[in-house]
Design a protein around this nucleic acid. Structure first.
Lengths: 340, 340
DNA sequence: GCATTCCTGATTTACGTACCTCAGGAATTG
DNA sequence: CAATTCCTGAGGTACGTAAATCAGGAATGC
């Protein structure tokens, strides 16, 4: 049988109340007594029963998700995943609130972060643009004892406890490798389309992609990156213009959003034979893959990201460390055959 | 506040004991009263607090994993993942036992299955070969109220509650698609290496692969499948012999184990330019991918499979249904750039 | 020497559920 | 009509932990 606080009390020769004080770091225990209890804990291999503890203290974990508003499909899928996690709140003792903020607006994020009450919120997960003010606001929250995790795009240099997302440099490299191989032998140009190079994830993908092409596929030259602010129509126009202007383009890598526009741009020029790699499985990209318009999609499982964020924030709030294997978000490659 | 049994009792105008009898399906309650209670449950949206319930009944979930013994790297990794899950047993209230059985020996599996005591075991996860006797033994266990899930390889036609693994036809198709694209333009032959075509997963991969090549890459002809019983040395010899005998081979798909042998066979013939796709990330295959010997690895995340099996068995034991999204095992494609 | 503070023990209640016992009324059986 | 069975209520204890209260002893300060 697993040892309980009663066993610890007996083993250490102290009362239950003292064990409780030590275990929960409350004051009022002499240093020697603390050590006696800690030794007993160690000797018996005591592990606190978190479920019983949470029951006794009627604990719930109030969490806040901060994500961009706007039409970006990926973000809306993310929001749906959060909503679906909210339905399980009674089971996993969470209380989740979603805050949407205008995209590309650091100040709005800072305002939401600063409005968070550390007394009533245990954890925050946010999709952040990489700016100094946000970094500072995150660190302020951390100082107040709130657990903060970044979602989808990281905030390097901040003290966030965890990043729930993929390594975007590696994602860019993966795209480069795919396009390089799919173009096997053909030489020509690759059009790179991005949302905004001010987003660290987009920047990372672009540089990873460029590095692989340069090192391993010298016959392919990069055109771009073209910036589109993740707007589908802008993507469509940019792609159309580039294709018309440059017949040497044999491949397209869209590392940002706006796949609908990309698909339309390609569909309008059926004579071109192109290798196309894009990001994120959404309604549009899924169909494009099935139809052979896209050759591969690089994906991050945002359901996994949301569930992982919740687990990680809870674990940190309890002073545990999460399972790194389980929380690592993979860079999924989907061809039409392994689409889930 | 979430409603409790007390609220249900008050709402239904019955005593706590009666609510308890209804909720736990115990006898001694008139049909009308049962309905009154059930209506109250529904009206208040009562959800039983599983953690409190498990605490009260001191519940643990005794689980058994049945996996093949022998040197197969993938199975050893699987075993390590189970061992790692065992370390978390106190936290997730499981008690896990591993039973290893000689590979390719259906009778041994049946013996282990039949030796399971339904009174002391709530769930079983097994890596099964697809035979009639095993199917029957699984169904016997199900009839005794034991939850059974298949792991890695499914048992279609049995009444197992869940399959924790990938769609192997789709995996084979994915391999076909990759090899077809990697060989872009080159025509020639593809050597297919399998462990045993009596394993349904191997059979499925082979047929998925063949279907895609035939439909989409008619310039590539299949040689094989060669059967190797998943033995690395046999794989090495078979690959060497095939390459020496047939200079038209431009690609290899190893859909089974024994990657070490495959790597050796290829390394001994450095002049050949080959596209190679294999399964499962292990120590050997990881290095081969990094070194450019393999072009891609198709993988199933066996840590995920094990954790998923545990979650699913527990959920079914509690009469809940698991999150299908979370429990779906993806067909991972790894290039050297997105290797975790 | 007395009050104050600090440390500790003892005891109790609570969390939400399971499960047990006991008692009594209603309904059924003979 | 008595005996039996079925249904229900009341009440309690337990699970492992948190947290509160009260009390008493030791150490400290003045």
């Amino acid at each position: 049988m697993r040892p309980t606080v009663h066993d610890i009390a007996a083993e250490a020769g102290v009362s239950l109340a003292t064990v409780d004080r030590v275990l929960n770091g409350r004051p009022g225990v002499r240093r020697q007594t603390v050590e006696r209890v800690e030794k007993a804990v160690h000797r018996l291999g005591y592990i606190r029963d978190l479920t019983a503890a949470n029951l006794a203290r009627r604990r719930i974990y109030p969490l806040v998700f901060i994500i961009p508003s706007g039409p970006n499909s990926f973000m809306r899928v993310l929001e749906a995943e959060i909503a679906s996690a909210m339905q399980r709140s009674p089971i996993d003792r969470t209380s989740i609130r979603i805050e949407t903020v205008p995209p590309f607006d650091p100040d709005a994020i800072v305002r939401v972060l600063d409005a968070i009450d550390p007394k009533t919120v245990t954890g925050v997960a946010l999709v952040a643009t990489d700016t100094e003010e946000i970094r500072a606001a995150v660190d302020r929250l951390i100082d107040q004892g709130v657990q903060v995790a970044t979602l989808v795009s990281d905030l390097p240099g901040s003290r966030r406890v965890h990043y729930c997302g993929i390594d975007n440099i590696a994602a860019g490299r993966t795209a480069g490798n795919l396009i390089g191989r799919f173009c096997a032998g053909r030489s020509g140009k690759v059009l790179v389309v991005a949302g905004s190079l001010k987003l660290s994830d987009h920047m990372d993908r672009a540089s990873g992609f460029a590095a692989v092409l340069e090192a391993e596929f010298p016959d392919l030259a990069i055109v771009g990156p073209v910036e589109t602010n993740d707007d589908a129509d802008t993507v469509g126009q940019a792609v159309g213009a580039a294709l018309d202007a440059d017949p040497a383009i044999v491949a397209i890598y869209n590392l940002g959003a706006g796949n609908r526009g990309l698909i339309e741009g390609i569909a309008a020029r059926p004579a071109r034979r192109l290798s196309v790699v894009a990001h994120e499985v959404t309604e549009h990209s899924r169909r494009a893959l099935a139809d052979g318009v896209f050759d591969a999609i690089i994906n991050q499982d945002c359901g996994h990201e949301v569930r992982s964020a919740i687990r990680v924030l809870k674990a940190h709030a309890d002073g545990l460390d999460p399972l790194s294997d389980q929380e690592r978000i993979r860079i999924d490659i989907f061809l039409k055959d392994n689409l889930p």
